[in-house]
Amino acid sequence: MATKNSELSSSEIKISVKHLNVGFPLGEKQIIKDVSFDVKKGEINGFLGISGAGKTTIIRVLTCQIPKKNWEGEVTVAKISPEKKSNHRELLSKIGYVPQLENLNLYYDLTPMVNVEIFASNYGIDKDIAVKKAQDLLSILDVPEDTWYNKTRSLSGGEKKRLSFAIGMINDPDILFLDEPTTGVDAAKRYDVLSYLKKINRNTGTTMMIITHDLEAAHICDTVAILRAGKLLEYGDPKGLISSLPSQGQIARLTIEDLDRNKINKVRDFAPVKKVMRSGNEILEVFMEDFDINLSKLVEYCIHNDIKIISLSRDEATFRRYFQIRIKEEEEREQRFEQGGGH
């Protein structure tokens, strides 16, 4: 039974990475340090991290862009290892890729349909099938029909982005890799872009791996990975990660008059408090044990210590807040490590 289960689960895994190390050269300048994770079939996986965290390096290993001499570990993408050069064409035929910048994916002086045809032909897809497929994809992505045969240059930024998604999907890939899909999109449209990705995922069941520093992307992700300085800090579903915070991610948001370091330390000294974070000039976010029981006690404690609370609200932590806490914890841990002489 155990064997059957393990076979079933391994068949569902689309990306498997075990103990991945990347360096230029390997063993000296380590960019990725012992990263392991699996992405299951149909999942949207988000790799989140600030610039220089190593997100792009991981995607480059998975998409055969980094030669084997620069990495070690067990990696399979759609059950194919990028280790051997002879596997590259087969692997690349099973994936789609949407680069960060549209001009790397689109011929601006050609029409969207011709663009799709060009990329489809690389996968051996006939013009008729490519056109039909393009029509389906562009319809799903709400690219207006009257733009399909105009020059791509005349499309809006959002339309170009969606055309780029369509090109990434033209070969019905097992896995679609997306590099910073919301870059260059204004804040109001970012949600739309992410919604279109979710729509594609829902309609086609395509596994997606998104690398981004846009933490909003976590909303559409089934699993997220937090990467910092080449190390994988966390991996799991976003809600689960948020609920791993003290008080299951519940926050007491206090607006305190003349908030300063002394008052913050005073709040921190209250025994049930697990974490205190300043948010803005006068706002303090407080995580604590047994939230419901201790909230009123916290208010009494503040009054008792001459801390004037202007307002109080309860809130649930967002993934953004989780990310900030986790990164800060890691920074503090490293600081302690360095101060302790590396011990």
């Binding site: 998409t63 035929s93 890729y97 790397l104 690389n122 996968y123 051996g124």
Partner: peptide, 13 residues
């Protein structure tokens, strides 16, 4: 031709 690197992420040689 800026999309060349992207073309190389398909089976194109």
């Amino acid at each position: 031709e800026k999309p060349i690197p992207r073309l190389l992420l398909s089976p194109a040689k």
